[in-house]
Amino acid sequence: MDIDIKLDSELDNIFEVRNLHYSFLGRYPALCDVSFDVKRGERVVVLGANGSGKSSLMNLLDGLVFPQKGEIRFMGREISEQNLKDENFNRFFRNKVGFVFQNSDVQLFSSTVWDEIAFGPLHLELPHDEVKARVEDISGLLGIKKLWERAPYQLSGGEKKKVAIASTVVVNPDVLLLDEPTNGLDPRSQAELVDFLQELYQAGKTIIISTHDLNIAKMISDRAIVLNESHTVEAEGATRDILENTELLLKANLIHEHIHCHDGEIHRHPHGHVGEHDHEHGRGHAHKHSHKH
């Protein structure tokens, strides 16, 4: 679909976030002076403990709420209430940016799964035949064709998440925002989601994920932005480096000191949502723990 929007499509930065301040009801701060860029085709993870402002940031990036101070630019144009009232820009932005909500129940508002997946493309004014073809394709890809006639309340958590992802990806957005996508998913559904996100990344999509699950962060991102409990950016860098910085992760409350006992001896070491860790114990003997979450 050609939409006549004058944007700087040559810009390398998809999102530019500058000195963002956002608070609930003007009183409870959610984000304070947050700045970062997201480049085209990047896989970025926003890491932070519960209440650090990750979900608010995702809502702001999707133009669902607006900052009290600072600005967010999408391909050079500011995401503001005024700009999103412009029907042309709104359609353009909604076409380019897809958002998978943390709570699938609020995202799945239609009466059947088919209607849910078709909602986005219909509202972005794709021809009906194209809508039907896309619903068919994405459902086949995610294995949810059998759910078409089902109502959202009849689905399991994993199925709901798949439908939510299908209903977002079906409009073929360039940027995909996912808020805590692995929350409440069983290990197999998590693995399927990771595989699907890898495929989308290889197809050139920009992916921004908010999570506190460090294991997932390691698998699906190259760059990490860490929000601390003061709602500011604590650190930004390569995911691998961030995840190796124990002090930083402790400070951001992403891992905690785990105290346990081996051979009658008490040990303490950092512990979080990571696959496994090595650590040395006293008296020169070392061993490895495996933690599966």
Binding site: L64, R94, F101, N103, F119, S167, V171
Partner: peptide
């Protein structure tokens, strides 16, 4: 939240 989810998909 439902309204936000609708807006997010072009409503």
């Amino acid at each position: 939240q439902v309204y936000s989810a609708m807006v997010s998909r072009g409503f």
